[in-house]
């Protein structure tokens, strides 16, 4: 279980990006974190990844505190971030350095086949399309078999068709070993299509606004009425989170005008 307790982040420039965020996320759960820009969702993800330290609060995986990148936590970024000087196969095997060669090869081969790129094993990253590159990045994160995989808007740079395709593909891969997925996104449909829980954040400072359980059976039919209902609920919540914020701004403005 991943436990976030009062995670708080203020950047050195004074921006209060995340305010006292707490959540408990079970193994195998898929959680989407959604919100407008500046709501601290990427900050949250980077704190869990151990890439940036929280100013206060703790992140703990199975009772073990996470302050630096952790072997059981993998991350997939918005850009594929493949190493251009390694072949596709070597990119996928990048995190398997400690394993014997034969084990590494077989795991990479399985992963390559699983993401449908077996014929690209020896290709260079530059020869891949955006969607293919992101699949390699997914394989690279999955292959060390982490318990938790963090995804930072992983499909937002792709076209709509490839995006839907990769979302389905991600669920397919997830079903193999059922790791915990924490997905930061600003795409409501993506959140509802993938997640068990959607955490709606509100900005300045970033904090949790509302938690919405999707409770939809898998595989999910994106055109069904129940899917639409959940989508509408998330949209409504997002809208409220921003409105309340806007009112606050108005109050501030009014106060300012009064002086």
């Amino acid at each position: 279980m991943l436990v976030l307790d009062g995670v708080d982040k203020t950047y050195p420039n004074g921006v209060h990006a995340l305010q006292s965020f707490s959540a408990r996320i079970n193994l195998g759960e898929i959680v989407a974190v959604i919100g407008g820009s500046g709501c601290g969702k990427s900050t949250l993800l980077r704190a869990i990844a151990g890439l940036d330290r929280a100013t206060a609060g703790t992140v703990a995986l199975d009772g073990e505190s996470v302050t630096a990148p952790h072997p059981k936590i993998g991350i997939i970024f918005q850009e594929a971030r493949l190493l251009p000087w390694l072949s596709v196969a070597d990119n996928i095997g990048f995190g398997l350095d400690g394993l014997p060669r034969s084990e590494r090869h077989s795991r990479v081969a399985v992963a390559l086949a699983r993401v449908g790129l077996a014929d690209k094993a020896k290709a260079w990253p530059r020869e891949l399309s955006g969607g293919q590159a992101q699949r390699v990045a997914i394989a690279r994160a999955l292959v060390p078999q982490p318990e938790v995989i963090l995804l930072d808007e992983p499909f937002s740079a792709l076209d709509a068709f490839t995006r839907t395709d990769l979302q389905d593909h991600l669920l397919d891969l997830w079903a193999d070993t059922r790791p915990t997925l924490i997905l930061v996104t600003h795409d409501v449909e993506e959140a509802v299509a993938l997640a068990d829980r959607v955490l709606v954040m509100r900005p300045r400072p970033g904090r949790l606004f509302e938690e919405i359980r999707t409770d939809l059976p898998r595989p999910r039919d994106r055109s069904s009425a129940s899917f639409e209902d959940v989508k509408r609920a998330v949209l409504h919540s997002l809208d409220l989170s921003l409105q309340r914020h806007r009112h606050q701004d108005d109050d501030l403005l009014n106060a300012g005008a009064g002086i």
Binding site: A49, L51, A68, P69, H70, P71, G74, I75, F77, E79, R81, L83, W85, F94, G95, D97
Partner: peptide
Amino acid sequence: RKIVEVGRAFRLSGPAMIRRILLPAVL
């Protein structure tokens, strides 16, 4: 910086970071 971050996410040690990320990137 984004590629270096990949190295960090995979917990590369200092020497490994130089050998596996910096050297090939600089070449």
